[in-house]
Write a protein that binds this DNA or RNA. Structure first.
Lengths: 232, 232, 232, 232
DNA sequence: AATGAATGAGTGTTCATTCAT
DNA sequence: TATGAATGAACACTCATTCAT
């Protein structure tokens, strides 16, 4: 009941809880992302999700609960969609590049919500902040697995996997965080290509490089970025 | 009065304005960094800076002014201290590495304030947000100059300078943003070394690499990071 | 519907109304007594009585109805149990002392509920407040009858019966109202003895006093209180 | 700072705190007494005392603070005015009767506020409830001193002083608590006389009775109540 | 007859901002 | 120039009551 990851609801039917919370959180994520946590009022969330103020408090204990589940909802997207997009992808280099692509694509879709995780995680109660951080690390570990497979398959030279992956993650997040600067220079595909050229390619072995080249031949998504920036 | 970068004061003596604002902003940056912008009250800032509430409104128009100048004060540190630390450093590779070092060192010193720029830039009025972003780009350009000198001197292969530099900058910021994760694995020196190994070394030419090697011999600050993470 | 003593129910079966109301009021009296009327919520009453919120509104018009019937339930205890305990008691002095004993014993049993009548009668709609006051007066009149019989039987000297009885009633209520002070000095028996010594004995005639003495010989309940307080 | 009896104020000038609090508490006592604690809103108190809502929170921490000081204000009246009215009164019997008179007179003046102490002490935080109870006991002790002097002077037979005094106090409070019943039968003077006949006179020795008789000759306030109730 | 999800007016409280001194 | 008392709009949150099922 008081465990940090649990959010109590006054409503018992779990189907209804799921449904209502989804609707309310959709509105909340959008509003928090657009205006920030503190500026967004419960009244606005109620109006935007088409329910009454009182109902929100039947499904969430307080505003902190809403923020927590909003942020978890964003991180859950990373954690579930990246593996989903990796399904059926076999070659380690392919898997790593696909994971980066997927991460950036999700960030692109959720752009403001991705920024929200940076803006508002600090507004969370400390115990819950830790849960959000752990969720980020879990997603990082997905990528670390991809990197390790590359190294173990002889496609990448040994490297500090943790640091490389976090740098890849920062790269993906930067598409949202620095979008105001990036959008003038890159489209999403160009950005991802640039990232792979910067943070994957240099660490590949000869075998790894030829795998990447094959990949690029098959899909324009991983086409080599030109030396200069790709125009939008 | 309506120009976005100007913050009006009711006090005319510019010397006094400078002095008072400095004291108030010191307190504000500290409080904003620690508790966040919205949670910090003007009353707290007044108390922490030893002046009255009324006086704050003699030197700042409103709370947004205080946030704006607080953030500018953080970005000013980057913009002025990095060049200062580059003074007397001649070799392009040395300059680049020193710049990264300097950036990380400042971030380390201002850790929570560096996070503040991510948390609270979005709370700024839009026109001022743009000014903060421009200040970030100006600092980036300092690093871009270092990279360009490396490339033009034949120490680094041609590369998307903008993207590399922004990635370097994200790396520096990540020392603050992800400090909860990094502090268990790195101390500052180890972190910087890892960053140089990840984001500088791979792009160096043979000549660049030997310059870096010489640098490492002279200073342990740039010592090669081991393949695994450097323990704290 | 608009008569003050009537509480309408949407349910027609009078047997069911009686039964359901009893269960709900048991819970309500307990909760009101423990936490107060305004702090207790309908939700809590529903939970404590094992019915749904909706059902409560089938048997009571609003929260004021529940308070009214809760208070009436407490006063009904006085009004029905005191005569019950007097049954078979013949001697006027005995009857008066027994009535005081009974009143205090009921108050002791309902302690918090007795306090509730002081706390919350004022929260009642004015017309219903008057009904509660009349119920109190009816119980007073029971005692007045006992006093009158004492006087008319020559056991007690003439006295302002109304005032004496109200003072006796205040004494009984004080066992609940001032229990925080009394419990350190008296147990229930000692308290009642003290009350009789204070508010009955002084007004007895010689015949009355010998009747009281006989009473005390038969039952330790009416044993003379020592000059000092009886220890618990 | 967190001691239960202390109420913090954001305003430093003690003169101003005294003045403002007095005005706000005057309104609060009146409103609480008339409508009850929970029904009275801060907004109403603000309006009635001619200040803004915000200002109230500069002088009181929360609504509980206001209730606490409101109740203390009532009990303070007892504690300071009864000794004031005893000044210059020498004879123990005179002092006791005067104290009862004074208590009833204050209750009469504060009638609704006196009821408030019964209605709302239970709404107080527990630690403060204890402080209010202690204040009541302090006033009781004033009366206990009067009784003791009577006994020690040989004007009253030995008796449980604590219980007698509490009964006297209940009598005084009953003038407010049961005013709806008493006002039809007594005026204040008749009520006090009845109380002295009931709770003082029976315990007097022969010397005490002659002192009371002398007192009655000098002042109509203590005139013997007729056997029947005094008409209003 | 019985449920409990849904409503929204109303509450205590906060805090940026003003202004008389 | 400097103070801090004063303001009141705005907020998170509660809870008596309703009503579709």
């Amino acid at each position: 009941m008081s465990s940090p990851e649990h959010v109590a609801s006054a409503v018992s039917d779990p189907r209804l809880v799921e449904e209502r919370r989804a609707g309310i959180l959709d509105a909340a994520v959008r509003l928090f992302a657009e205006h920030g946590y503190y500026v967004t009022t419960i009244q606005q969330i109620a109006r935007a999700s088409g329910v009454s103020i009182g109902l929100i408090y039947q499904y969430f204990g307080d505003k902190d609960d809403i923020l927590f589940l909003s942020l978890r909802r964003v991180l859950d997207r990373y954690e579930t969609e990246i593996p989903a997009r990796l399904e059926g992808v076999g070659h380690p280099v392919d898997r790593l590049c696909t994971a980066v692509w997927a991460y950036c694509a999700i960030v692109d879709e959720l752009r403001q919500a991705a920024v929200l995780t940076y803006r508002s995680t600090g507004s969370l109660r400390a115990d819950r902040r830790a849960l959000i951080q752990q969720a980020e690390l879990r997603t990082n570990r997905l990528l670390e697995g991809c990197v390790r497979d590359c190294v173990e398959g002889g496609f990448m030279r040994p490297i500090d996997e943790f640091l490389l992956v976090y740098q890849l993650v920062m790269f993906c997040h930067a598409w949202a965080l620095k979008h105001w600067a990036m959008r003038e220079r890159f489209d999403l595909a160009g950005y991802v290509s640039g990232g792979i050229a910067l943070l994957v390619e240099p660490f590949l072995t000869a075998r790894g490089r030829s795998a990447l080249a094959a990949l690029r031949r098959r899909s324009r998504d991983f086409s080599a970025a030109p030396a200069g920036a790709a125009a939008v």
